[in-house]
Design a protein around this nucleic acid. Sequence first.
RNA 1: CGGGUUGUGGCGCAGGUUGGUAGCGCGCCUCGUUCGGGACGAGGAGGUCGGGAGUUCAAAUCUCCCCAACCCGACCA
Length: 568
Amino acid sequence: MRWSKLFTPTLRDAPNDAVAPSHQLLVRGGFIRQLHAGHYSMLPLGWRVHQKVANIVRQEIEAIGGQEFLLPTMHPAELWKKSGRWDTMGEIMFRLEDRKGADNALGITHEEIFATVAAELSSYKQLPQIWYHIQTKFRDEARPKSGLLRVREFHMKDSYSFDVDDAGLDVSFDLHDTAYRRIFERLGIPAFAVQASSGAMGGNDSVEFMTPSDAGEDDVIRCPNCDYSANIEKATARLDIIDDESGPSQPERFDTPGVRTIKALEEFDGGAPADRQLKTMVMVLDGRITLAVVRGDHQLNTQKLVDATGAIEIRPAEADETLAALGAQPGSLGAVGVADHPVIVDEALQGRTNMTTGANIDDVHYRGVSVDRDLVVAQWADLREVEAGEPCIRCGAALGVVRCIEVGHIFKLGREYAEVFGATVSTPDGGEEPIVMGSYGIGIGRNMAAVVEAHHDDKGIVWPVSVTPFEAVITLMRTDEETMAAGDKLYGELKAAGVDVLLDDRDARAGVKFADAELIGIPYRLTVGPRGLRDGKVEFTTRSTGETTDVVIQAAAASVWEAVTAAR
RNA sequence: CGGGUUGUGGCGCAGGUUGGUAGCGCGCCUCGUUCGGGACGAGGAGGUCGGGAGUUCAAAUCUCCCCAACCCGACCA
């Protein structure tokens, strides 16, 4: 490709609304342009990278036996109603009516559709199967952000495994686990696996692949000592056992004028330290008032509450709902004796006695509360959010929190979809069993952005050779006949050698060309100018190190080829 | 969906409180001089000031409504 013909509108300044480095650099480098919130146009350079990322994913999924499909992205509502997700998916799904008035959905994922196709599987002899496609997904995200990191329209590689039994699923799952590790390795993304909540997608055994980045949206708990790591929505930690005094035989009311917070109650004369208090969070789960109780110094993690209850919609109660339900304002709330709303209690409170909590009367609290005795516990669950510094559940070392981008997610679906969509196979003993499925996703554009997050400097992007839009750029210092001829010759040699090469034949100043080449992140550069040509030499520069050496022109193409093939 | 911010040529911004008919830098076009790290000079093109309504002789500027984008939270590859 000749740069003079290439459409890559580079910008000296990043648009003001771009904050994440990958967002700024992809826009500045002319890789992408925003159409509207969460929808980006891939410009030629961006599309080249996108395709290289997709191809790496494709190769690794093929390597574990995956077969590529292409399923539609617009689906009849019927399929989603069948699985129940027409209702449970809520607002994340784009829905539209066709001219006949029939409901349609734009696919947020493809379990329903692959399961429908899988209904044609008939015998255990055909299993296992791994099916995948790389297809557009639409998600009406509440908040698209950070360029390609969180969008409403994106390409995802989603694969689905089909096995006769759980043991088979384990194998398919592990195959994906290793394939994913290879993918991130090849993309140059430093990713690691964490235990995760499977959220709205259903299923159990859920593993996310994370890469540390300030631009990310997930907090991950990591142990510095052992290999424990988990999404904060799932993470647990060891807790010191607290010895309570047994306390009175029943809770005692006491007046607490003006006390509205845990902290205020700690300082109040006759109050209690936060770890001897109960914190009562009033939540609305699918329209139903529910109390979530955690220790005073603990934080409720709402995803844990969702996982524990299977709720679809969850929100904190409004002040008036709280008043109507409990008869008091926040600050004096408690769960003692509450029987007409479900009370879900964090496991850390099991067996605790002599605790202090709100009495559901403004400015009044209880002390001497025994959790088991005084609360009508509908459910015990792990609700509390782990904090940095707490002891690792496995080894006791102080846990750390890292902000991460989720670059991949694999999880075991089980038999649910197969049952709903009639994907069953006959078994060796003549019976018939639903297929066991797994589901595995990687967002292509997101990974492209994640690569940039991991590989950039103050001059621009530093693409790994594996996904770079061009592997080498030949920068012509002048456009006179002699320089042009030398550049053309190198260009021809590199093309013939199978190197993706860009010839910067623009009539521009050296500084502009250098800056552009660095901005768009081409790994290797040959600089051709009259100065070197006099001695029959060109310069060879490596983007990542900035290292420059003179090479004789006859050997230049070979040097690039060697560097590129070594890094591919 | 809650909280915050911002909408003025392609990008970055000024102007707005004190209404008077739009300006700067970069980029773009032409010519010339330059030419190894974002050149200089001269000339030029490009904007319904997010949209609508209102106030006014007059609105980028004041008022109301709407829309969009971005950032922080709740949600996901």
